[in-house]
Nucleic acid binder design. Structure first.
Length: 791
DNA sequence: GCAGAGTGTCTTTTT
DNA sequence: GACACTCTGC
């Protein structure tokens, strides 16, 4: 037994130094007995702290060895955070533990059992882009009508099926279209299998199926992971829930932490219902609410509580704080989006002037498109800022190109990568040649790479040259270090040369050089140097046997995150294959220019889990926040409200809310009404910087709510028009004479009944965008079109 | 085969 | 207003 891990259970939980810093709720959660538990952790209630302290406490009280813990998060960032905090608490080799993202752990699991999972050991992972291009390619090959089945929709369909744990045969096909989609799903699966690649959903689904169907494997892992901890449980989808369930047998404990009020990912398959299901199906007897908020003053917290109280079916939680009311929540109405940005910039100047660091100030918005005008404002004011979101390092085109070459070295069957670079840099291989090649490959039932030898003529020569280049590179890079391999590929693929000749290729070359660095630090961090594989099973000394694990079972306590040796042969992935996996699973940082003290700009989604002294939530307008698409159903609206709740609870000291009467969106000026969320906030906590009313009076002025056309969607609240061509406080123009308003129903002699969506221009030039259910969206000149309002 | 013009689309995001 | 995609002329 390791001296660090006394086997006795602590007599008094409070006596452990780990628990001393916690409040009562937190301490109760951390020291729960080894049974299933659900921790409802409100915003700012110390969720990560409870999770990590729980692990530390289990380890230090000898209830489990590091190898017996599995902790699952959604993001790499959260996993890293957990590992960092944990190693600060205990002298434990966290890299050897199963702490990681769902996908990272699935990857590790599948690498270890690749034969059972019927995958090549060096299977590569398709990211979202790769997946889409694979689907498009497949659709072309099978003559799928792109009009009827857009590739994006199929991608969404396939991903959705996998998230539900469904293979093609499990998908109910009610219509002809459904049948076709399922057929394509099947073709896509066949294609991936043939090419030796898996997408993100497949990582999860396949490891779930292996756990479900293979008794020895399941028994092994169930015996092994005595404690399973899940972060952000409200964001789990159906498949992830099932996956967790297969790991949870008799005698192990699932510790789930989540907050139903912060569930903002239903749109990508998250099921808040998993929390209630968990309680029921696992017979959870320990439920603890963490309601003590350590982050915000009470004006901010009151606002958050009042807002979220409008949602139905909550598990029920109310945040409280011991801090005073603090500053009121400031509300501002701007005439234009630019003015809104300028106001925020002015406020930020004052804040910075009073000593607040710029990085403690965040400007949040609902959608990325809104950042531009704010950036302009900050830029003009000379305030440094940093925008989160957008392209990540491994998603950049030049990086994807380089990775495609590398993937072809590892796996020539990877047609997605083949097509990506077969003519990049341009080498005279056009669409025609590629089509012929694809036909040949299909006829021969082989990969594009292998089909090249069968092609003839000039096209054949060019293609042959390309394949030869790849094959030679593969030969030449045998036995080289990862760094050298990448350098060879960059030099001989022609990528560097190509970008050198390009006018603004300097950045791209810089990124390619950065790729070499990334590989270098990957090798160092993951310990790919020499003898990385043979680390002790369990750094802290407890042998698996002492855990009651069958010593005959293959043990998979591999210490290195992406380097799982084959359970039977001990064979491991090449550094290159491991690096490619790393690139897919961890797409890198969102923004290059880190470092300096800058104002933080991001979407509300991106802000989840973060906190700032001062937070601006901008663009609080109907149609934007809540977003237009969400307003048609109650679930969507409630998710928007949770999103707003997340936004509010990011603020520690100061919160600013703003909206604008007009906004340039998609190149058109839209007139927006202020968000309904303002009406759900407690008046006592707010301070209106502009007279309240303004857009608000629009409601009575136009009398909507009573005579307004309502969209009838089962059980939903009244759908509110999102765009006003005739604002109550018109910035400049006089109201138009045609009397049309967005949302109004009109009749057209040819197109029938339709709904006015947008209006623009004046007098003879006035036109309206109208959605006709039977004829689609049309732009009509009002001086010409004969439109009659429909009551 | 390729470059430039024209067209259509357009939440939120991690893996 | 930006990007991705398709079409067209060379």
């Amino acid at each position: 037994m390791s001296p660090q891990f006394p086997t006795r259970a602590p007599a008094d939980p409070a006596s452990s130094p780990l628990l001393g810093q916690l409040n009562d709720e937190q301490r109760a959660a951390v020291s729960l007995p080894p049974e299933h538990a659900l921790i409802l952790a409100g915003a700012g209630s110390g969720k990560t702290r409870v999770l990590t302290t729980r692990i530390a406490w289990l380890l230090s009280t000898g209830q489990v060895s590091p190898g017996g813990v599995m902790a699952v998060t959604f993001t790499n960032k959260a996993a890293k955070e957990m590992m960092t905090r944990l190693s600060a608490m205990l002298p434990v080799n966290v890299r050897g533990m199963w702490i990681g993202t769902f996908h990272g752990l699935c990857n590790r699991f599948l690498r270890a059992h690749y034969k059972l999972a019927e995958l090549p050991q060096a299977f590569q992972i398709l990211d979202t882009q790769d997946q889409l291009s694979a689907i498009k390619r497949l659709m072309k090959q099978h003559n799928v009508d792109e009009e009827r089945f857009p590739a994006k929709e199929l991608q969404w369909f396939i991903g959705g099926c996998k998230e539900e744990g469904m293979r093609p045969r499990d998908v109910p096909a009610r219509s002809e279209d459904d049948r076709r989609k399922v057929e394509i799903y099947q073709l896509y699966e066949d294609q991936c299998q043939r090419e030796g690649v898996v997408d993100f959903g497949e990582l999860m689904l396949r490891s779930y199926e292996l756990m479900r169907d293979n008794d020895p494997v399941r028994e092994h892992y169930r015996r092994r992971f005595r404690h399973i901890l899940i972060d952000e449980f409200q964001d789990t989808n159906r498949l992830q829930y099932l996956w967790i369930k297969t790991f949870a047998g008799d005698g192990n404990a699932v510790f789930a932490v989540g907050d139903d009020d912060q569930s903002i990912y239903a749109f990508r398959g998250a099921r808040v219902g998993n929390m209630a299901d968990f309680v029921r199906e696992f017979g959870v007897s320990h439920q603890i609410k963490l309601e003590q908020n350590y982050r915000s003053y009470s004006n901010i917290l009151d606002s958050a509580n009042a807002l979220i109280a409008h949602n139905k079916g909550r598990l029920g939680k109310n945040l409280r704080t011991t801090q005073g009311p603090g500053e009121p929540v400031r509300v501002y109405e701007a005439p234009t989006d630019l003015a809104e940005a300028q106001w925020a910039v002015e406020e930020i100047r004052h804040l910075v002037g009073s000593g607040l660091p710029r990085h403690e100030i965040a400007i949040l918005y609902r959608s990325n498109a809104q950042s531009r005008v704010i950036e302009t404002g900050l830029f003009n004011a000379g305030l440094p800022y940093r925008v989160y979101g957008g392209l990540r390092f491994f998603e950049r085109a030049e990086i994807k190109h380089a990775l495609a070459y590398l993937r072809l070295l590892e796996n020539p069957r990877d047609d997605t990568s083949f097509l990506r670079v077969v003519n990049f840099p341009p080498r005279g291989i056009g669409a025609r040649s590629i089509e012929q090649l694809q036909d040949a490959a299909r006829a021969a039932g082989c990969s594009l790479h292998d089909a090249v030898s069968a092609t003839t003529g000039k096209a054949g020569a060019n293609l042959g040259g390309f394949v030869a280049k790849i094959d030679v590179l593969r030969e030449q890079t045998q036995g080289l270090t990862l760094r050298e391999i990448i350098e060879q590929v960059l030099a001989h693929s022609g990528l560097l040369e190509h970008y050198r000749a390009e006018r603004d290729g300097a950045d791209r070359i810089e990124n390619l050089e950065e790729l070499v660095n990334a590989a270098e630090s990957f090798v160092t961090q993951e310990g790919f140097g020499r003898d990385a594989v043979a680390l002790p099973v369990d750094e802290l000394g407890q042998s698996p046997a002492s855990q009651g694990i069958d010593p005959d079972q293959p043990l998979l306590d591999e210490p290195i995150a992406s380097l799982a040796p084959d359970a039977e042969t001990g064979e491991t992935l090449s550094p290159l294959a491991a690096f490619l996996t790393h690139a897919a699973l961890e797409a890198g940082d969102n923004q290059a220019q880190a470092g300096q003290d800058a104002v933080q700009l991001m979407t509300v989604h991106a802000a989840k889990g973060l906190e700032f002294d001062a937070v601006f939530v901008t663009g609080l307008e109907e149609g934007l926040f809540p977003s237009e698409r969400s307003m048609s159903d109650l679930d969507g609206l409630e998710e928007e409200r949770r999103l707003m709740y997340v936004a509010i609870t990011r603020a520690r000291q100061r919160l600013y809310l703003s909206h604008s009467q007009t906004r340039l969106l998609h190149g058109q000026t839209r007139y927006n009404v202020r968000s309904r969320f303002f009406d759900e906030l407690p008046e006592h906590a707010l301070k209106w910087l502009t007279p309240r009313g303004g857009a608000g009076q629009a409601r009575s002025a136009f009398g909507w709510g009573s005579g307004y056309p309502s969209t009838r969607l089962g059980g939903s609240r009244e759908a509110v028009p999102t765009v006003f061509a005739n604002p109550p406080v018109p910035p400049q123009k006089a109201p138009p004479a045609h009397g049309l308003r967005p949302g109004m129903k009109v009749f057209h002699t040819k197109f029938g009944e339709g709904k006015v969506q947008l209006l623009e221009g004046q007098g003879d030039e006035a036109r309206a965008q109208i959605n006709f259910p039977r004829h689609g969206v049309k732009w009509l000149a009002l001086s010409v079109a004969k439109l009659t309002p429909v009551e």
